[in-house]
Design a protein around this nucleic acid. Structure first.
Lengths: 200, 200
DNA sequence: TGTGTATGTTGACGAGGTCAACATCCTGAG
DNA sequence: CTCAGGATGTTGACCTCGTCAACATACACA
């Protein structure tokens, strides 16, 4: 984060806004992101963001898209260096997914919360989430070809798998799950049950 | 909904507030619920709700709790009249769960969205969701005793099942799933995969 | 070297949550 | 039966927030 040095122009305010908003979300949730507050933190006026985003929602969408990008990267990157069987790798993917949500709860919530992002459609967001799904479909297709899981429509299976991990992540984040349970074990059981269910 | 007849006091404003807020949520989402708006619809001033709820969040929590009550009732009531095998009944429960969410998307979102309800803990909400979980645990326990699903810790299995249906409901509501897919089929496949995975 | 455009700033407005002071009603003790 | 005090509502005011319009500044390019 470069110093601002009292220059009238910021340099790359747009990127700074997205980064700072993400930080604020981590610290105090999406509601803590205020045009005035974010401006203050960046040494800029409250209306400055409007030169880069049509409204606050657009800024939040950008943050959410960035979140999907990171999650996607994490899931992809993980495939390469992972040892063990192929099924093991799929399970590992599920675990990484949930872990991302637990590490970035407010961000994850923003990514999926249609409410905070207004009812409107945001094609970029749709696309960012879509990229995630496509990757999952690809991986599932590979596993089908190896005969490790049943050969149903890969997209449907991807939806089922996505539902399971997203649901678990969501319940954990919203504290709907007894804090005394062993989270790691629960994650493992979820992915295991899922994979077993998909195996013919 | 009894007439108000210009009496100074409303009669049962608290109940009316919860009911009206729920209606407004269905119509325009949680953000459309405004102290001023809800007051207006009930022929009451903007500050009147504060005689019954400490703040807006408390009112929304009450609405969410009511939602859990209805969902719970739906899942319970459904068990009795359902024909077919025992596993069939469990699957039916999952389907009813998702269907409830699809029929009451904004309400369902409110029930699970920690963001809209502020970060604070709301024990009533926790309890309302807990009742749901307990019911699910009971049903799972019965199925275990009949040997229809593996005898793992019933609570863990309940969490896994809950995750799956909640995740699917959530993704559907947030329009993350291709609108061209056959929703009913997807619901069926999800519950089926889940049950298969839990069967030893 | 200007000048138009991109980028920032300030003032103002309207919406919304909430509190304080005041009004009205209802209920139970005497 | 009456009337005082609590319960329930109302109005005015304040603060925060998103956003727009009018104005200021800086940068890039002809």
């Amino acid at each position: 984060m470069a110093e601002r040095e009292q220059t009238y122009h910021h340099g790359d305010l747009r990127a700074a806004l997205v980064e700072e908003a993400a930080a604020m979300i981590s610290e105090g949730g999406a509601t803590s992101v205020t045009m005035r507050a974010i401006g203050g933190r960046l040494g800029v006026s409250r209306a400055a963001p409007y030169r880069h985003f049509p409204d606050k929602t657009a800024l939040l969408v950008a943050v959410a898209v960035e979140g999907f990008r990171r999650l996607n990267q994490r899931l992809r990157g993980d495939g390469t260096g992972t040892p063990g069987s192929s099924v093991e790798r799929l399970r590992h993917m599920g675990e990484q997914y949930v872990r991302f949500a637990l590490e970035n709860p407010a961000h994850y919530r923003l990514m999926y919360g249609r409410e905070a992002l207004a009812r409107q459609d945001h094609p970029e967001l749709r696309q960012a989430a879509g990229a995630l799904l496509e990757h999952l479909v690809d991986v599932i297709r590979v596993h089908q070809q190896r005969g490790e899981i049943e050969r149903k429509a890969p997209r449907s299976q991807a939806y089922v798998a996505w539902s399971a991990v997203h649901g678990l992540a969501s319940l954990l984040i919203e504290r709907q799950i007894d804090p005394n349970v062993d989270v790691d074990a629960l994650i493992r059981q979820t992915t295991q049950t899922l994979l077993h269910g998909m195996r013919g």
